[in-house]
């Protein structure tokens, strides 16, 4: 059982339901999503067949800006960044290279990046957005649901907005009103209305 606020697998097949509880727990743990997902309700009916996952996310940290990960000081033409958290160093370098050209960006050691420019740096460099964890997180959540769902269920509809997500899949064509008729009911169990 993953340590979520709410986690239920609803299934007409007892053995299969238990197996899916284990699968969901393993997948969420493998993809490191246990800290991100707050509530998750999974509904599977192999007779129809249909798979629904509805859930709520915890509060996700926003965009990472340069000032969050480095101390910036200017010495004449040189802007020196002392990196305090190197998690997003690679995307930072890519950003600097594309904006200021490669020959102007130097990294004398692991925790220092030096930008050499003749004219002053336009705008406030500290405000530059380096990475947005939400972008990959949404992709990861949909991937996790795809991974949990039975494999043959290739027809799917997915949604992530704010802190609400759902994923519905089947091997047959999904009815147009599936979200209103089935998914909305599962989301209501989590106290959410779309």
């Amino acid at each position: 059982m993953p340590p979520l606020e709410y986690f239920t697998v609803e299934c007409s097949d007892g053995v299969g339901g238990e197996a899916y509880e284990r699968i969901a727990a393993d997948v969420l743990q493998d993809l490191d999503l246990l800290k991100v997902i707050d509530k998750l309700h999974i509904y599977i009916d192999p007779v129809v067949p249909i798979f629904v996952a509805a859930g709520l996310l915890r509060k996700i940290p926003g965009a990472v800006r340069l000032r969050d990960m480095a101390a910036i000081r200017t010495e004449g033409e040189r802007t020196i960044m002392d990196i305090s958290d190197e998690t997003y160093l690679a995307p930072l370098l890519t950003k600097l290279w594309s904006q200021f050209a490669r020959e102007n960006v130097d990294q004398p050691d692991r925790f220092t990046v030096v930008l050499t420019l003749r004219e002053p740096v336009p705008g406030d460099l500290g405000e530059m957005v380096v990475a947005d964890p939400r972008e990959t997180l949404y992709r990861d959540i949909i991937y996790a649901m795809q991974y949990i769902a039975p494999e043959g269920f290739k027809v799917r509809r997915q949604y992530v907005k704010g802190n609400v997500f759902y994923y519905v899949a089947s091997e047959d064509t999904l009815p147009d009103d599936i979200v209103e008729t089935l998914v909305a009911g599962k989301l209501a169990l989590l106290g959410v209305t779309l």
Binding site: D13, V15, G16, Y20, P46, P49, P150, E151, G152
Partner: peptide, 11 residues
Amino acid sequence: AVYVLGNFAEC
């Protein structure tokens, strides 16, 4: 041949 199948009796 060993068939490694899934979780649902129905399937």
